[in-house]
Design a protein around this nucleic acid. Structure first.
Length: 157
DNA sequence: GCCAACGTTGGC
DNA sequence: GCCAACGTTGGC
């Protein structure tokens, strides 16, 4: 079992929208490190901390789960999409993603400030200065700590 | 292959 | 809106 953190901007695709749609392909990722993690390392059933970025109070707001094998991001072939990539071909896709499923909202959000202030979360990728990766691996001990801070019982998973 | 210029992310 | 960090692009 691996744990992850994914960032999304709440005004673009917030956790409320994932809740409504139940599951979603994580399209639009155009960073090779993030792609490689989805393509090579994510497994069905892995738990994912859902993080809101670029907003008044950035932080982890809930839980999601990997629910698909890796497959091509269809937006790379769509000329009308802002994520269209002219170098990507149907028989040789460049961008690969997985689908995530809504699991739940935390009873209380865990803000970035809270995480930075918690000695138990030292070293976690998301609290590191200058971190811009939209997907990052999370250690089990950090995952459990964030759940605890959010009032989320991992036994519910 | 180096590296300057440029673009994007995202906290503040 | 500012700016630090850092990925990407393209000239050479």
């Amino acid at each position: 079992m691996n744990y992850w953190l994914i960032k999304s901007e709440p005004h673009v695709y917030g956790i409320k929208l994932l809740k409504k749609e139940k599951r979603s392909p994580w399209d639009g990722v155009r960073n090779y490190q993030a792609r490689n993690m989805m393509r090579d390392d994510m497994k069905i059933g892995d738990f994912v901390l859902y993080y809101h970025s670029n907003c008044a109070e950035p932080g982890v707001v809930g839980m999601a789960r990997v629910v698909s094998e890796p497959h091509p991001d269809h937006t790379q072939f769509d000329k009308k999409s802002k994520y269209y990539d002219e170098k990507a071909k149907e028989d040789n896709p460049r961008w690969i993603l997985v689908d995530f499923e809504y699991v739940g909202e935390f009873p209380k959000a865990v803000s970035l400030a809270d995480m930075k202030a918690d000695p138990k979360l030292e070293g976690m990728v998301v609290v590191r200065k200058g971190n811009r990766l939209s997907i990052s691996p999370v250690e089990g001990k950090h995952f459990r700590r964030v759940c605890k801070l959010g009032g989320w019982d991992p036994k519910d998973d």
